[in-house]
């Protein structure tokens, strides 16, 4: 692929003390696009995201290739990784209640990203922070800057997280279930903000989610994972043309507004999905 930000080939991950690999032979490339990774809990989707940021101490990560722009993520030292993590590649986590520091004002937490990665004084960092809070459509950035996480709603918390992660202007953002803790009315708002910023800035996005509706509407391409393997890769708009029985099973299991109300299709898991490629 032209202008690839990320090139992953044959990535396998085994947690410390585990008898099986959590991720097996995953390969994909990512350009300036939005890539969805979907699968059930335990399919290894979050593990892939964490491995890219090298957030798996103790786990054994092997790959033929794990390249992010000009750096090889496999043999980067931790000191060099600090210059990549948060600066060139960052991660939005599921629940702002747990990912924001409860005893620090949100503005200070956002500013920390800037102070950590750029030679700036506090006043400059504050100006940048306010600008970024406005960019995630927080109406009164001055006021919100001085609030604590418990004083803001979940949707606003997640917008603060997005501001924090995009402040250093990274080339790749990994969003791990960014909206599953939010109400449906707020969810769309947050997704639209994230989507707008990612497109405007030409950032590569990996959206990790269990929600097929979400990846269908907010991604260009989708990897479907089952038991640590990628079983199918699809263009998001061709989701209904999925061929792998697992993908088709997931789609059929989802109740839909205006559906028939007949019994929902139930996955008949086949052992061969764990091995080999397409059915």
């Amino acid at each position: 692929m032209q202008d690839a930000i990320l090139d992953v080939k044959n990535l396998s991950i085994r947690y410390n003390g585990a008898s099986e690999d959590a991720v097996r032979g995953v390969s994909f490339t990512l350009g300036r696009e939005r890539l969805g990774i979907v699968g059930e809990s335990g399919s290894g989707k979050s593990t892939v995201g964490r491995a890219l940021l090298r957030l798996l101490p103790g786990a054994r990560v092997t790959a033929d290739r794990l390249r992010f722009e000009d750096v090889d993520l496999l043999d980067l030292s931790e000191r060099e990784m600090l210059k990549v993590r948060g600066r060139r590649m960052s991660m939005i986590l599921q629940d702002p209640k747990f990912s924001l520091n409860p005893i620090q004002r949100v503005g200070a937490q956002v500013a920390e990203t800037y102070l950590r990665h750029f030679p700036a004084n506090k006043a400059e960092a504050r100006a940048k922070t306010l600008e970024m809070l406005a960019a995630v459509r927080i109406r009164d950035p001055e006021r919100v800057h001085d609030l604590y996480p418990h004083e803001i709603s979940g949707g606003m918390g997640q917008r603060v997280m997005i501001a924090m992660m995009l402040l250093a202007d990274p080339d790749l953002v990994i969003a791990d279930e960014p909206t599953s803790a939010l109400d449906v009315t707020v969810r769309l708002q947050v997704l639209n903000i994230l989507d707008g910023l990612v497109r405007d800035r030409g950032i590569g996005l990996i959206m990790i989610s269990h929600d097929l509706n979400l990846v269908r509407n907010f991604c260009d391409r989708v990897l479907i994972m089952y038991a640590g393997r990628v079983v199918e890769t699809l263009d998001a708009r061709d989701m209904d043309a999925a061929e792998h029985p697992y993908t088709r099973g997931l789609l059929a299991a989802q109740p839909r507004i205006g559906g028939t109300r007949g019994p929902l299709a139930v996955l008949d898991r086949r052992p061969e999905w764990k091995e080999g490629s397409t059915p």
Binding site: E40, S41, H210, L212, G249, L250, A253, Q254, P255, P263, L264, A265, V266, L267
Partner: peptide
């Protein structure tokens, strides 16, 4: 629950 497991539980509740 995952969507596939949700389907099983909703079917059970309906039945």
């Amino acid at each position: 629950l995952d969507v596939s497991v949700q389907a099983e539980i909703l079917n059970l509740l309906a039945r």
